[in-house]
Each structure stands twice: as structure tokens, then as C-alpha cells.
Write a protein that binds this DNA or RNA. Sequence first.
DNA 1: CTGAAAGCGCTAACAG
DNA 2: CTGTTAGCGCTTTCAG
Lengths: 324, 324
Amino acid sequence: MVRIKDVAREAGVAPSTVSLVMNKKGYVSEETRRKVEAAMKKLHYVPSGVARSLSLNRTNTIGVIMPSAAHPFFGELIGELETALYNAGYKMVLCCTHAKDNAEPHFVEMLKRRNMDGIIMGAHSLDEGLYDNLERPVVAFDRYLNDCIPIVHCDHCQGGKLAAETFLRHSCRHVVEIVGSSIMKTPADDYHRVAAEILTSQGVKVDRIERPWNEPSYASFMQIARQLFADYPDADGILGADLSVSACLYVAQERGLRVPEDVKLLAYDGTLITQMGTQPLTAIRQPIKELAELTVCKLLAMIKGEQDSQPWMIAPTFQPGATC
Amino acid sequence: MVRIKDVAREAGVAPSTVSLVMNKKGYVSEETRRKVEAAMKKLHYVPSGVARSLSLNRTNTIGVIMPSAAHPFFGELIGELETALYNAGYKMVLCCTHAKDNAEPHFVEMLKRRNMDGIIMGAHSLDEGLYDNLERPVVAFDRYLNDCIPIVHCDHCQGGKLAAETFLRHSCRHVVEIVGSSIMKTPADDYHRVAAEILTSQGVKVDRIERPWNEPSYASFMQIARQLFADYPDADGILGADLSVSACLYVAQERGLRVPEDVKLLAYDGTLITQMGTQPLTAIRQPIKELAELTVCKLLAMIKGEQDSQPWMIAPTFQPGATC
DNA sequence: CTGAAAGCGCTAACAG
DNA sequence: CTGTTAGCGCTTTCAG
């Protein structure tokens, strides 16, 4: 392996000069630069990223913790985060917590070991205190971690409002919400709360049915959908995450219900799957790309010790479809 | 920041002894061990991963290059790779090449900089020679890179056979294959080739229609599907990747065709999306989890300089559905 | 503008 | 069983 020292010797200069050339720092005469560059090329020199990180106390790497990469929402989010980080010169190391025993503390440990310059946390955390006293910055994505960790999220109150308005516009009288496990409090709870408040105030009956904790299999979505139609056969509006609502579409058809004539389905998230299949889902879309960019922007600002004046929240949009 | 030296001083021992304790190496007396552990705890010592990597010339990090994380197949694959790597004590740094200018060379550069111990490459590469003369191991996932880089992939010949048998079983007379861009030669081409050979030999007419290069938007899938039905109105069997076939299901319905009565649809891959919607897609499923585990196993064996006697290929399975 | 030298924090021989 | 010492490869003052 060829080191900076070898390049220096070959070029007849000191290692520090080679460093200056590599990093385009300071003043180096044109001639010296050329000599150094020639030496680097001749020796096929490739600098060590690790040594550099040790010296700089910075790895240009961000840890991203998400429940799963296979889930359409998180898959899309991970992709956008990676792109935003890449554009800022950072690498992304990914940790998926679902189906792992206790990956999360293990991963946070890596942050402490200074393997990463910061963390974006988008998984559920049941581990109180895990994020206290960290020396390096953490930004939460749509999650409450502790009082000190800032959160980037979609304006779910606005989302709830859009949802309620949609059901009201179609004169629904009985809306059922499929909500996540109540073990977990998240900013996304707001859309269910706000939608229910508005609908109730307009005399619409609202029920909710809860999904099991940490169970992302499609079969479980189907099961909830079946239970929903069994428990609330007169429901004429359903609100839930994309996958939940997608399952409802299937079960509605199974039961001979017409969508949207008999029952309106409104998906929350608006990922790719809402566009697929024979009947695209009407949805409230979270602007995933913008959320990812904002998250990265906020985290990098924290790393640089800067202030960033953008708000921490982005509004969702209404995405037309064939189910409302 | 507290360093190993500080712990050593606190415990009244040498840094090397602290290192031995941390890594559970060599022989350390019970008493010394306790003193060291107490000192570590007292000082809230967290070792530096970067310094360790520099010393060991090993980062316990693997680079994974994929086209996209938002695509159902790659999302699932990425998740399984991450889990397999995690279980082996490795972190995954992810690079998605789609929609980035030339991320791939940039990423390979990181491998050269020894930021990673190896690479799993699952993206298309048009960059000839990029993978030559690498000092650290690379395993390709379902891609041809160069003559030296081994490939883990699904047994696509078997997949093609399964597909052909399915169409024959349903007495199809005219099958259309939706194939990827011919710019790219991949192991997956085999299933189209083999299916076509078998079908043709049985007197079935086979046509193919090509998807544009590197264009993963759902709209483009819809466009191809429309073109397919326009060009081959008498097709009674369609074979293609999940998303392609999903789009065909939509368009078939749009044109008033009954599935599977008028036309059989067979999806290749069998990701989550085949299970969704009102009509689950019949599919040839690639065993993504097993493929991911095999890929990781092979790469880690290369890193350790070991031999691994497992074959580099895994057979696909038939997944029943409602479209054949 | 360039070079010498002192780190960055950990590991691994090798003595003792 | 433990301490000394010499790296790992790069960056960064600080003289000159």
C-alpha cells in the first residue's frame, strides 16, 4: 500500500505538502502541485479515508435508523435521505430495526464511538434515555425521542384537516380510522386526532381500530381490514396508512362493496403503492423527498453548529385517486 | 474526550492492558480486569471506532450499491442484506445510483480509500473497468461486472422454465415478454430467453417488448403496458417484472379484458406488491432473503480469505395468485 | 511557499 | 500477566 509519505518522497516534497495538494488547501506553487499530482498518479495513490477521519475527528458519515427498508414509505424515504446526504458529501450507514433484537442501542453505540457524525432516527424507540447525553447531533424523523431532540415531520394536523374535508365533501356519515399501536406516541397521531375532531364536530360518527405493534406483514393488514368490515359494516369512510387502506380495498371488493360508491377509502402517505393496482388510492401525500431534504439540512446544520431558520414541518398534499 | 490512556491512568495500568480488557483478548488477571472496567465506567469511556479501524486496517463496514431503495425488490433486498450483515457484525453503507450523476465511481473510490471492507454491487454498471484491480473484495448481485467478480443470483433458467410451464399449463398461444433494456446484459435475461425457447418449441408465439433504460417511474410501466396491448391485442400471456405486470393488470382491465380468463399475467420477482391490490399476481418468486444471506456469506468468506463451498445460485419458486 | 514534528486514539509485538 | 514502544496514515500548526 502506498502512503502519503511515499508520494512525498517520489515528488521530492514533504507529506504535508502532498496533503495540501490533495485537499486543495493553502498555497502551493504550480510546479510543486504538478510534481505531486504526477507522483500520486504514478504510484496509484489512494488516500486512506480512515486515517483522515481519525485526524479530522469527522467521518462524513451519517447513521440512519429506520424500521424497515422493505416498507414502501421507508424505502422511499431511505432513498431520498441517501440522495440528500450524497449531495452534501456524506455517506449513509443504514440500520433497520424491525426483526432485530436490540439493534437500536447497538447502533447508537456506534455514534458514540464516533463512527458517524450524526444520526437520523426514524424508528420507534421504546428505549427511554437512550438518546440522552449524546455528544453528536441527532434529528428525529416523525418520532418523539426526548425533549432535546428536534423532530422533522409532516404537518399532520393539516393532513388530518385535508382528510376530514375529503370525507365531508363526500358526505360520509361514519368514518373508521385505522391507527397505529397506541404503545407508541408519534407526531403522526395528530392526523387521526384532528380528522376525528373535525368529523365529530360535523356530526360524523368516528370509530377507530388499532393495528398491532411492530407487525408489518401484509397478512396482518388484511386481518385488520377484515375485522374492520366485520365490526363496522356500515362504515362509509376509511382512513389509514397506505397499506392498511390497500388491504381494505381488497376486502371491500371481497364483500361486494363498491368503492367509492358504498365506501370511500383515503390513504395516508401516498407512496408508490397507492398508484398501483386496478384502482389507484386517493391519498394524503407526505412530501417524502422534501422531508428527507429538510431532515438532512437540519442535521448538517447542527453538525456545523449553524442555525437554520426553516420550519421543522412540511405540509402534506391531496393526491387524487379512484377511491373517494 | 476520554482516551484509552486516561482509562489506563485511572486504573493504574498500561493502555495495552485496557485494550486487552476491551477486546477480551489475552490473559488479564481478574483483579486488573475489574480495575479497568471500573475505570472505564467511571470515566464514561467510549472507544474510538475510527482509531480502531486505522489500527486494524478494517472497518467492519460493507458498501452496498443498488439502483434504488424505493423499488420494492431492491427495498426488500436492502433490508435483508442489512440484516444479514448486522448478524455478522457488519454495518452497511448504502449507495443508490439511480438519479445520481456518477455515483458509482465515486462510491468505488470509497472502497479504495479503505472506508469499507468490501462491496456488494447490485446496480447496473456501464462503467467498464471500474471494478478491475480492486484490492478489496466485491460480490455482484445478479450483475455481470467483469470476469473476476463472482455473482450471486437466482437460477433464472429455472425461473424461465417455471414461467414457460405455467403458460403451457394454461394453454396460452401467444405470450409477450416485457424485458429490461437491452443495453444491459444481466443474468436475469436468462429467464426470458429460456421461457421463450421452451414456449417456441411448443408452438407458442412469443413476442417481446423492451423497457427504456434506467426509467423506474410507474408512469413508464403504464406506458409500456398500453403499448403492449395496442401492439399485441391477441396476447393471452404476459411475463415481466412485478411492476410491469402490475401495470398490465391495470391496462387489461381498462381495455375490458378479463384476467386470467382472457389473458394470463405472470410476474417475475414476487415482491410485496404482487400480494397487494384486489387481484394478487401469480408470480415466480426470487427468494430474496436467501439470496441476501448467500451474498453476505460469500463476501465475508472472501474478506476472511476462506473458501465457501455453497453454490452461487438459488432456485426461484412458484407463487400462486389470481392472474393465471 | 514548504518542511519538520507533534498529534488523532488504538493495537500488537516483544520484553520483562 | 503487564508495560514499553512503535506503528496505522493523515492533518496541521509553526518555523524558516
